[in-house]
Structures are given as C-alpha cells and as structure tokens.
C-alpha cells in the first residue's frame, strides 16, 4: 500500500511540472490560436539560465528563480514579436513550421555553446521520510510551487483588469478589440506569463534532473498531449490533464511496463479523444 501511495506522490510531482508547462501552452493557444511547439525549448533555456545565474553567478536559488522567470518572460515577448506576430492570420500549420525552425535554432545554439549536460545543486539537499515514503525535499518544492503558481494565475485572471482582458481576448478576439482592448499588448503579456511559468517549472525541476539541450523536446510532446486532453485553451483542462498524465505515467511504470509507459499514456489520450473529440473540458474547435 505504501508503494502505491509513494508512486501516487511521485505521479503528482511529475504532473506538477507538466501542469506548469501546459498552462502556458493552453493560454497561448487560447489567446493567439497558435501551436507554440517551441515552448519546451524555452523551458530548456530557463534551466540553462538557472545554471548561469546560480552556479556561475553564485546567486541564491530563490532569487535566481525570480531572475530566471523575469528574464525568460522577456525572451518570450521577443519570440512572440519576431516569430509569431508576422505569422498572424496564416494557417495554423504554418506557425507549427516556424516553431520547429525555432526549436532547431535554440537547440543547436545551446549545444554549440555547451555540449555537455550540466547539473545544478539542490538548494536544500535532504530526504524526507514519512509514512514509509522516501522523498527528496525538492520534490515537495515542485508540488507546492505548482500549486502556488496555479492559484496566483487564477487570481490574476479572475481578479485583475488585465487578467479579465486576457480572458476576454481568449473568448472573443474581435469583440475584445471592439471594446478597446489592445490585442497586441495582450498577446505579448500572455507570452510573458506563459514563458515565466515555463521558467519556474525549469528552475524547480533542474536540481532533480540534469540540464541538457534536448530536455525540452520530450516535455513539449507531453505538454501538448495534456493541453489536447484537457481541451485546447481550457485552463481547467490543462490542470486536470497534467496531474492525470503524471499519475498515469508513474502507475504505468510501476504496474504495467516501464519501457512501454509512453505507449500506454498516449493510448489513453487517443481513447479520450476518440470519445470526446474536443477534449475533456470542451476546448476550441
């Protein structure tokens, strides 16, 4: 029983990082209607930024978290301005090609500068023990960090003027423009928030994993799967889908087959979509 509980907690922790990345992706899809496939690579840049700021710069981990989120938010805005805005109004699949182009550029660049995988020390290196579970403290930080960010994001969108404007654009772009909302500014803001979330996920996860140029390409596949399970543009869907995928993976490794766990996770997605073609929470068509 404690083994099952153990896998459940790990599944939630895996899900936490997925949620943070998927939330940004679904926001971007909702507002800008683009498949931002390079989101995972911005996450990867976030992890390298942490290495630069914390390991090379010697700055405290928690301050580094803020710095990385801010820096990557700026990066996200630049990407939106340079790559995606010129493509506005073009077919959906064209933005996908641009995203692949961006992926190739970022990955090649990072590997050219630093070909070796890096590791980042944990801010507090202890292992917790409770109820038969062994868990590194950092995993708890990931779980709590995700919850805090989800709550903050919800508060921002529901309680502030800017947040409501984002929701308005997501629901009806033309209508929002009519009532005087600056759609360009909202797009930039959305990208800033989404990439800051990805940076937070990267910074929280980096001490548990190793930092490598291809760390984003696996994550982005899963994040897309989550966004689609939940329904494109649906924040609720991204949260539920993220935790769901994390738990499915952890359980598949434990009880089915570790080598085929992705097969299992992706098959679940296909079944869900075959039954509900627009996701669990009815996203956009």
């Amino acid at each position: 029983m404690s083994f099952f509980f153990n896998q459940l907690v790990i599944g939630i922790q895996l899900g936490s990082q997925y949620v943070m990345v998927a939330l940004g992706l679904t926001l971007i899809f909702g507002i800008l209607d683009i498949s931002h496939f390079a989101h995972g690579h911005l996450y990867m840049i976030g992890a390298y930024l942490l290495y630069i700021v914390m390991v090379l710069g010697g700055i405290n981990y928690w301050i580094a978290l803020i710095i990385c989120m801010a820096a990557l938010a700026v990066g996200g805005v630049v990407v939106e301005r340079l790559v995606y805005r010129p493509l506005r109004g073009q077919p959906h699949i064209n933005t996908f090609i641009a995203a692949i182009g961006l992926i190739l550029v970022l990955e090649t660049l990072v590997r050219g500068i630093q070909p070796k995988a890096l590791s980042v020390p944990k801010p507090i290196d202890t292992t917790l023990q409770f109820a038969g579970i062994n868990m590194e403290l950092q995993r708890l930080f990931v779980i709590i960090g995700a919850v805090v960010l989800i709550v903050l994001l919800q508060l921002f969108i529901k309680r502030t003027r800017l947040g409501t404007a984002i929701e308005a654009v997501a629901q009806d772009r033309e209508g929002a423009a009519l009532v005087g909302i600056n759609v360009n500014r909202i797009s930039a803001l959305t990208f800033a928030i989404a990439t800051a979330l990805a940076a937070a996920a990267a910074v929280l996860m980096a001490p548990l994993a190793f930092v490598s140029p291809e760390m984003g390409s696996v994550l982005i596949l899963k994040a897309f799967v989550i966004v689609v399970i939940g329904g494109l543009g649906s924040m609720k869907g991204a949260i539920v889908g993220g935790y769901l995928l994390g738990i499915i993976e952890a359980m598949a490794i434990a009880y089915i087959s570790s080598a085929y766990k992705d097969v299992f996770a992706f098959a679940v997605l296909i079944i869900i979509l075959a039954i509900r073609p627009t996701g669990l929470f009815r996203g956009r068509d």
Partner: peptide, 27 residues
C-alpha cells in the same frame, strides 16, 4: 479514431500515434 477529431486535435492525435509506433519499434 483520429479522423473524428479536427484541426490541431487531429495533428496531435496522429503525433501520439507516431510516438506509440516509434516506442513499439524501439522496444
């Protein structure tokens, strides 16, 4: 199953199929 979905949903579902096929061949 996948043609029941449309647009980006179809793209992602087929992408999932691709990952499944690759994983099966790999293992």
């Amino acid at each position: 199953p996948s043609l029941r979905t449309k647009g980006p949903y179809f793209a992602i579902v087929t992408l999932c199929f691709n990952v499944i096929v690759y994983k099966v061949f790999e293992n």
